[in-house]
């Protein structure tokens, strides 16, 4: 996604299919890969978007690339088939694990920032890339807690993984905000330390505070502080694309359009609404 900037996109969800279909300037969306049947057909709304030239990126959430156990071959195969069905230029997944010891966590869990965890991610990304027809972008997650085992800083941990896997970076700017706020660290220091030239695209989402902890919910409005971080990121290196993730409690269409416009303004890209 480096040849020509895609600008502002949105995560396609069945619930907002009609809204997304009516965005005149839209050039890219993302779809949760596990929600697309590997044998086809492509959901109607997505097929219509592809037909009008919109790029669709499959976003995996259940590979468990950070698991100590090898990725499950049928999950990798599914992601590869979906990438082909959607004619996607790349896929994305998380630097996280979602199951261990035969038990599903039901969510993305943080890894210890250790050499052993780097090795586990690198091995699983290599297994995955061997089956994929396109490049993969890796997304660091929002973590509500850290491991006591940490040996590396977050920037060291992520940079080492990207260097050793040759993967692209899917930077979630709302996760950068959430982690810095909850850990009491400086989000700009992290931006300064990350390889921003490796960014394939950026995630933007809203969240909410609960008992003094900021949760990256994807069901609340995007805070002004996250838009400010987009401006800071673009001042350093403007990413080729930014994508709004909204996963529930959908607001009225004009509110969602205003969020897309605010992201476009913060990154100085054309509006898509």
């Amino acid at each position: 996604m480096t040849a020509q900037p895609y600008g502002v996109g949105i995560g396609w969800r069945p619930e907002i299919d009609g809204f997304v279909a009516e965005l005149p300037g839209l050039r890219f969306v993302e779809v949760v890969a596990e929600g697309v049947p590997g044998t086809g057909p492509v959901p109607d709304g997505l097929a219509a978007l592809i037909a009008r030239g919109v790029t669709v990126v499959p976003h995996g959430v259940r590979l468990s690339l950070g698991g100590a156990e090898p990725v499950e071959p049928q999950r990798v195969g599914h992601l590869a088939r979906v990438a082909e069905l959607l004619r996607a230029p790349l896929v994305s997944e998380h630097i996280a694990y979602v199951r261990a010891g035969g038990m599903e966590a039901g969510h993305l869990l943080p890894l210890p920032r250790t050499r052993a965890a780097v090795d586990a991610v690198v091995a699983n990304v290599a297994r995955t890339r061997a089956e994929l027809p396109v490049p993969i972008a890796l997304e660091p997650i929002a973590a509500l807690f850290d491991w006591p085992d940490d040996e590396l800083t977050e920037a060291q941990f992520l940079t080492e993984i990207l260097d050793r896997t040759d993967a692209l970076l899917l930077l979630d700017i709302a996760n950068v905000y959430a982690n810095a706020r909850n850990r009491g660290t400086d989000p700009l220091a992290l931006l300064d330390a990350l390889p921003l030239d490796r960014i394939a695209y950026v995630h933007v989402a809203g969240g909410d505070e609960h008992d003094g902890i900021y949760h990256d919910t994807h069901t609340h409005a995007v805070p002004e502080a996250v838009l400010a971080l987009i401006r800071e990121l673009c001042a350093r290196q403007r990413p080729p694309a930014l994508l709004l993730e909204r996963d529930g409690d959908y607001p009225p269409a004009d509110v969602l359009r205003a969020e897309l416009d605010a992201i476009a303004a913060a990154a100085d890209y054309p509006t898509v609404t």
Binding site: A68, E69, Y97, R99, A100, G101, M103, P112, A116, A120
Partner: peptide, 15 residues
């Protein structure tokens, strides 16, 4: 933590 085996056990404990 020294290797993949420990990581697997620690991840399972946390889940």
């Amino acid at each position: 933590m020294t290797g993949g085996h420990d990581l697997a056990a620690r991840q399972a404990e946390l889940v």
